[in-house]
């Protein structure tokens, strides 16, 4: 086993199909789509449950149930039901990212200082203003940690796409294993790990930028 595959310049030529940059891009594509769809579904539900306190058991159980669901198994089930294609992959990955986003947006809203919210209402903010100007900014640190958690998991797990014939960095693992090219497998593993770290760093930067300095060190 060696790093020759990883450091071969030919594998870094963006123009070539199956090159590492091309696989990174398609990998990030699955990641971004899954996070986007997951956030669109889980954020409003989590915020609503956290805000109203209605259906807390959904938020809590979703976290536990989601973590115990094997993504690969779910993917195979979806392929059996829906056939090959992008859709079963996106469904499997979205199911993976929903629990951390749901649980953290719920927790972020639930643990708000109720006195601050009371002050906001008492000063004459409409419910929508209380949500957008007070509750969301205050819940943001907790929500972002859940989102980063989801991103880390999905970067690692999006490799399953290759097992049903799609692209992404899983190609290096699947194809490398198929032809006993362990240098390729190692390259895939390293790139996925580095990508996960970079994505998390990127989200950490965004978090620094959007979370008020007044909340730093408090949560």
């Amino acid at each position: 086993m060696n790093l020759s595959y990883l450091f071969d310049p030919a594998h870094w030529d963006l123009g070539v199909t199956g090159s590492i940059p091309e696989l990174i891009l398609s990998h990030l594509g699955y990641v971004a789509l899954a996070l986007l769809i997951g956030a669109v579904i889980a954020l409003p539900v989590g915020l609503y449950i956290g805000h109203t306190g209605k259906g807390s058991f959904i938020a809590i159980n979703a976290g536990n149930a989601g973590r115990s669901l094997p993504t690969l198994g779910l993917l195979m089930l979806m392929v059996t039901l829906l056939g090959l294609g992008l859709l079963p992959v996106l469904i499997a990955l979205t199911v993976l990212v929903i629990p951390p986003i749901l649980t953290s947006s719920y927790a972020g809203m639930r643990n708000l200082d109720h006195r601050v919210v009371d002050a906001a209402r008492g000063m004459g903010m409409h419910p929508w203003e209380v949500l957008t100007k007070v509750e969301l900014p205050m819940a943001l640190p907790v929500m972002m940690s859940g989102f980063r958690n989801a991103a880390l998991q999905v970067v690692a797990t999006a490799t399953v796409a290759a097992s049903v014939g799609l692209g992404g960095l899983g190609r290096l693992l699947i194809d490398g294993l198929a032809v006993n090219d362990y240098s390729r497998v190692l390259a895939g593993a390293i790139v996925v790990a580095v990508l996960a770290v970079l994505v998390d760093l990127f989200l950490a930067l965004i978090q620094r930028w959007i979370v008020s300095p007044g909340l730093k060190g408090l949560s």
Binding site: V116, M123, M125
Partner: peptide, 30 residues
């Protein structure tokens, strides 16, 4: 309801300041 409250100052125990806003922006809220 909201308009009524904007015309009435409201001070609570522990102040209930917005932690994500500066002191100046807290005061400028209403």
């Amino acid at each position: 309801e909201a308009l009524l409250r904007r015309g009435i100052g409201y001070v609570i125990q522990h102040a209930g300041l917005f932690p994500h806003r500066t002191v100046l922006d807290n005061v400028a809220t209403v």
